[in-house]
Every structure is written in structure tokens, then in C-alpha cells.
């Protein structure tokens, strides 16, 4: 097997590992659209990264990939804060706000990139929108595993509090959970995962890696923890299958992974797996 194929597999599995548990919380908290909004705004981060790379000697110490990751993270975090501020004004419903932020930041990103292309920048927009597993570099891998480890540690740390907030926010507050902090930390974690996973399945498909494995895992799980672990495993299977498809039939890797994940999701609907599990007393 070639080097780049190994890197692709490792990167995909890393992303599946993090997005399993994080995706469960997104599904439980009904934050799918929030994830989507951050992902859309990531393109603005990409544009900003290229702009800084073009203009500044300030960031010459960083590789382009690292710079892009940092600007994407910055934009995602900014958008999260803007959302919190707009929500606190209670003038528009959250889904309306998310719609505005998602599409305006995506469009702004596309317009900015067009200007940069006018300046002579050559970028593969398609790869950012839909992902390109096969172009993963060592720097990307470092980010995925470094960022992923950080997110998983944080998630374990706030696991109980986060679960308590999902079940009943006020009850959690009375029982001493620092609700605002936990929610903020969770938002930052989602932003970080989107920034590092963007390369794999792309801006427009990244939410599917968070949601589809988690939704598939629901039918097997009897505890929240089981659901999180199963979601990681299912995500990993989808990555392996999608990569195989991409290799065998030369299909785009990001969409292939999502198609594989969707396939697994549909199978769990057709085959009564919980009945099978009961049969074998698992």
C-alpha cells in the first residue's frame, strides 16, 4: 500500500474516533444545524488563511496547512460567539440566526476566494467543499491526532456535566453544574473538530460524519457511553469502506465516506439488529 493511502486511512480513522462521541452529543442536543453553520463558516477561515499567507511574513514560521487550520478555528470560534450574542437578544429564532450565519459566511468565503484567485492564487475549491482524503499530509495527521486527543480528554472530563445539561438544564444548574462554562467548552470543541476534520470530508459534508454514525449507533446502544463507542466504530467502518470505494472506482473520497456511512445507516433500518442482539444475548 502506498504511503498516502496509509495517511488517508489513519486520518479518516482519527476523525471517526473523535466525531463518534462528539456527534452523539450533537444529536442529543439537537445541534446538527449548529455544526453545519460552523462548517460553512470554515470556508471564510480558509480564505482568511490564504490572505494572511499571501500578505504576511508574520506567519512565515507556520506551514500553510497549520495557518489554514488556525484561521479556520478562529473563524469558527468567532461565529460561535456571534451566535451566542445574537441568541441572547431573543429577537430571532435560533434556526433563523444559524441560517443567516451559515450562508453569509459561506458566501463571504467564496467571494473572498474569488478575489484571491484574481490575485493569482491557485486553489482546489472542490477539495475544500467536499474533502480530499488522499491529499492528507503529515501536518494534517498531527493536527487530527493532537486536536482529537485534546477534544476526547475534554469530553471525558465534562461528560457527566454535559449529559446532565442535556437531560435538564435547570436541574443540572441546581445540582452545581457550571452550565455556561460547559456549554462554551463544548462549542469550542465542536469548532476544533470541524477545523481539523474539514480536510477529510469537506465543509459541506462534515456534519454528516458527526450525525450519521451517531444516529446509526442509537439502535444498538443501551447507555450513552455505548452509543458513543459504537458511533466511533461505525464511523471507522464508513471511512474504510469509503476509502476502498474511492480507490477502486476513483470516486471522490469525501462523498464516498458519507455514502458508506449512509449505507450502514440504512442497513440498520432494514435488518432488525436489536432483535439479533437479543437472540445472542449480547
Amino acid at each position: 500500500m502506498d504511503d498516502f493511502l496509509w495517511r488517508a486511512l489513519l486520518a479518516g480513522l482519527g476523525v471517526a474516533l473523535i466525531s463518534g462521541p462528539l456527534g452523539c452529543f450533537i444529536v442529543w442536543r439537537r445541534m446538527a444545524y449548529f455544526g453545519d453553520t460552523l462548517a460553512h463558516s470554515a470556508l471564510l477561515g480558509i480564505a482568511l488563511g490564504f490572505l494572511l499567507n499571501l500578505k504576511g511574513n508574520l506567519f512565515s514560521g507556520l506551514t500553510l496547512n497549520t495557518l489554514l487550520m488556525l484561521t479556520t478555528l478562529g473563524v469558527c470560534i468567532t461565529i460561535s460567539f456571534v451566535l451566542v450574542i445574537l441568541q441572547s437578544q431573543k429577537r430571532l429564532a435560533t434556526d433563523t440566526l444559524l441560517g443567516i450565519l451559515a450562508h453569509s459566511s459561506l458566501s463571504l468565503g467564496l467571494v473572498a476566494l474569488a478575489f484571491l484567485q484574481g490575485e493569482g492564487l491557485r486553489i482546489d475549491l472542490y477539495a475544500y467543499l467536499f474533502g480530499d482524503l488522499l491529499a492528507v499530509t503529515q501536518t494534517d495527521l498531527d493536527w487530527i491526532y493532537g486536536g482529537g486527543a485534546l477534544v476526547l480528554l475534554c469530553l471525558v472530563w465534562i461528560w457527566q456535566s454535559l449529559l446532565s445539561i442535556i437531560v435538564h438544564e435547570e436541574l443540572a444548574a441546581v445540582e452545581g453544574v457550571p452550565v455556561a462554562w460547559v456549554r462554551l467548552l463544548f462549542m469550542l470543541m465542536v469548532a476544533l473538530v470541524i477545523a481539523v476534520a474539514m480536510k477529510i470530508v469537506g465543509i459541506l459534508l462534515i456534519t454528516s460524519m458527526l450525525i450519521i454514525p451517531a444516529a446509526t449507533a442509537r439502535s444498538f446502544a443501551r447507555t450513552p457511553e455505548q452509543m458513543a463507542i459504537f458511533a466511533s466504530l461505525i464511523g471507522g467502518m464508513a471511512v474504510a469502506l469509503g476509502l476502498y470505494m474511492s480507490w477502486e472506482w476513483d470516486t471522490p473520497s469525501g462523498p464516498s465516506v458519507v455514502v458508506a456511512a449512509t449505507g450502514l445507516f440504512i442497513i440498520t433500518f432494514i435488518i432488525p439488529i436489536s432483535a439479533l442482539l437479543k437472540l445472542f444475548k449480547v
Partner: peptide
């Protein structure tokens, strides 16, 4: 929400 698998035991141990 039915999407959250939670037993009474797990619920009680949250607080």
C-alpha cells in the same frame, strides 16, 4: 428525547 439511551439507573447517577 428517544435518541438518548438512558436508563433510570444512569439518570439517577447524573446528579
Amino acid at each position: 428525547d428517544p435518541v438518548l439511551p438512558l436508563t433510570v439507573e444512569r439518570f439517577l447517577s447524573l446528579g
